[in-house]
Amino acid sequence: MEASELLGLLARTLAGIDADLAMPSRLCRACVEILGAQSGAVTLSASPEERLTVSTSDGVSAHIGDLEDMLGEGPGHLALVEDRIVVTPIDGAHPVDDAFPLFSQLVASIRGPATAYAVPMRVSGRVVGVLSLYVEAGRLARDPEDAQFLADAVGMALLGQVDSFDWSTRSRIHQATGMVIAQLGIGPSDALAVLRAHAFAHSTTLETIAREVLARRLAFTYDDTNAVQIERTEEP
């Protein structure tokens, strides 16, 4: 489909979506509808570690996004790193994807048989985020070039609204990372890995663990053998 036709389709679809919703939500839902997906999410990101999910079309996308954030791996991360569309089955029957083995194993518990698409959003040659789509039919209703064009259009539209997004969730994770940096004297990437590992071990989200750390109910220290210990208190 030509660019002008796709833009027209995007405009027509946007026109049919509740105008009271925020623009990121409308754009996300429009992409889900146009591309024949059942669920979707839009995430802005400069790198896999620095990401902000600005809209999810439903709870399924939110759960899958949380899983990817908690594990630090998944199709969205790979799409960002390698700047390409990543497609992976979600059904528990296929062999795990070597690029994100934990995600492959765990995501099937969230969502039944489906296919996950992660499309990098490019603006002026830079990847500025990912459009994630979950399709029960096995494939998108349109070809990958159309999905890429829509993702780029969404990225472009969102860049003009960066200041209006809610950064608080991401801020909490960064702040908790900083507390772990101070507790263990390790670098930001390692501190974030500690938080992720703890979230994984307790089958919860990275944000939940970040809240625990910020509330000083959860802290990390070294024991006599230099192994990381967890200190948990009910009240700070």
């Binding site: 570690e49 991401r170 990372t177 900083g178 507390m179 772990v180 940096i181």
Partner: peptide, 14 residues
């Protein structure tokens, strides 16, 4: 944002 927020957490802890 990432660097400044991490530093905020570090100062809170320290």
């Amino acid at each position: 944002s990432a660097v400044v927020e991490q530093a905020l957490g570090a100062v809170m802890e320290a």
